[in-house]
């Protein structure tokens, strides 16, 4: 899937709490927030570790491998700007390190998506310095 073919979904608005996640994607790396005290992986990123209460954090690079955990296919244009862009699929991918990521699948037809399907990250620039982590068949 090229960025031109994507429906006009709202781009993410990075904040102080998650900027390193988006910075890494631009460099072609998928990272997840890791607690500096207890090594718990936290996604989406947030100020405090829900396991130990620490504010200290690092960013651990993921392998980019995972599997489809759940998915939905949107048939109705639920936003005026999505007209002509349906149906589209959105998936939850379970990374092999554990976290769940919301994403799109780039090369899999809607009727072929299945829970448990192995997938691999790919990095798709959508403009304005934003790169999204999308997934293709592994």
């Amino acid at each position: 899937m090229t960025s031109e073919a994507r429906p006009p979904f709202p781009p993410p608005v990075p904040t102080e709490d998650n900027q390193p996640f988006w910075d890494a994607l631009r460099e072609g790396r998928l990272v997840v927030q890791e607690c500096a005290e207890c090594a718990h992986l936290v996604h989406p990123p947030r100020p405090m570790c829900p396991e130990c209460g620490s504010f200290e954090k690092g960013w651990r690079e993921m392998s980019g491998r995972g599997e489809v955990y759940s998915y939905v296919v949107t048939h109705q244009a639920i936003h005026p700007s999505f007209s002509g862009h349906t149906p589209y699929a959105t998936a939850l991918v379970r990374l092999e390190e554990g976290p769940l990521l919301t994403t799109n699948l780039t090369d899999i037809a809607h009727d072929e998506i299945a829970i448990g399907m192995p997938v691999q990250v790919e990095f798709v620039a959508i403009g304005d310095g934003i790169t999204l982590p999308l997934f293709r068949r592994a």
Binding site: P11, V13, T103
Partner: peptide, 18 residues
């Protein structure tokens, strides 16, 4: 929709808005 702000930055860019 929240225009990609806050926690929606991790869902809306992939088409989840409602």
């Amino acid at each position: 929709g929240r225009r990609g702000q806050g926690g929606s930055a991790f869902t809306e860019p992939f088409g989840l808005l409602t």
